Simulated assay, not measured.
Amino acid sequence: MFKGLGGLAGLGDMAKMMKAATEMQSKITELQEELSKIVVTGESGGGLVKALATAKGEVTGLDIDPSILVAGEKEVVEDLILAAIHDAQAKARMKSERRMARLAEKMGVPPGMKLPF
């Protein structure tokens, strides 16, 4: 009756794989929530402009030293703000990639294979 299904042992293996996949998805979801709570700081202009972002890359705040808010220096300030945001996003990406790699290693995912798939 079940000849084409590889016997009941095959169904047990499939159940193990489904359980492992569900567990992995749960751990990825937990990590995503954790990453949204971790804050990194990007800087530019020697710390005159700072951008705060979550480890998921969402910019959550800016800190601008008032000394650079000089009339006629609008472009410089804009460039410093963008540079700080890019720095924060790069740091967020690195932190996220490191955390995902650690999770993948713990779960036995081969090195170089990124989560989520």
Results as ranks from 00 to 15, higher is better:
residue 6 G to S: 11
residue 4 G to L: 12
residue 14 M to I: 09
residue 72 G to F: 00
residue 25 Q to H: 12
residue 13 D to L: 13
residue 98 R to K: 14
residue 46 G to R: 05
residue 10 G to M: 07
residue 29 T to S: 15
residue 101 A to S: 14
residue 90 A to Y: 00
residue 19 K to H: 11
residue 72 G to A: 03
residue 104 A to Q: 10
residue 47 G to F: 01
residue 58 E to G: 05
residue 12 G to H: 07
residue 60 T to N: 11
residue 29 T to M: 11
residue 74 K to I: 12
residue 4 G to E: 15
residue 67 S to D: 11
residue 6 G to W: 08
residue 52 L to I: 01
residue 115 L to S: 05
residue 111 P to H: 04
residue 85 I to D: 01
residue 60 T to F: 08
residue 100 M to K: 04
residue 12 G to S: 11
residue 108 G to Y: 08
residue 27 K to F: 04
residue 5 L to G: 00
residue 98 R to G: 06
residue 1 M to K: 03
residue 77 V to F: 01
residue 20 A to T: 09
residue 83 A to K: 02
residue 82 L to I: 11
residue 44 S to I: 10
residue 74 K to M: 12
residue 80 L to E: 05
residue 70 V to P: 02
residue 18 M to T: 14
residue 15 A to G: 06
residue 99 R to D: 12
residue 4 G to I: 06
residue 102 R to V: 07
residue 65 D to E: 13
residue 30 E to C: 09
residue 39 V to A: 04
residue 85 I to W: 01
residue 77 V to C: 04
residue 55 A to K: 11
residue 49 V to F: 04
residue 11 L to S: 07
residue 66 P to S: 03
residue 73 E to Q: 12
residue 56 K to V: 11
residue 54 T to R: 13
residue 80 L to D: 05
residue 10 G to Q: 14
residue 105 E to C: 03
residue 117 F to S: 10
residue 36 S to Q: 11
residue 20 A to F: 09
residue 65 D to Q: 06
residue 107 M to R: 13
residue 39 V to S: 09
residue 81 I to G: 00
residue 87 D to Y: 02
residue 65 D to R: 02
residue 56 K to Y: 03
residue 41 T to R: 04
residue 26 S to C: 03
residue 98 R to T: 14
residue 78 E to R: 03
residue 3 K to T: 10
residue 82 L to M: 14
residue 110 P to I: 06
residue 33 E to I: 07
residue 107 M to L: 15
residue 97 E to T: 09
residue 68 I to P: 11
residue 64 I to T: 06
residue 99 R to C: 07
residue 113 M to E: 14
residue 45 G to L: 08
residue 60 T to G: 07
residue 54 T to D: 13
residue 1 M to S: 09
residue 41 T to E: 14
residue 115 L to Q: 05
residue 86 H to D: 11
residue 110 P to Y: 00
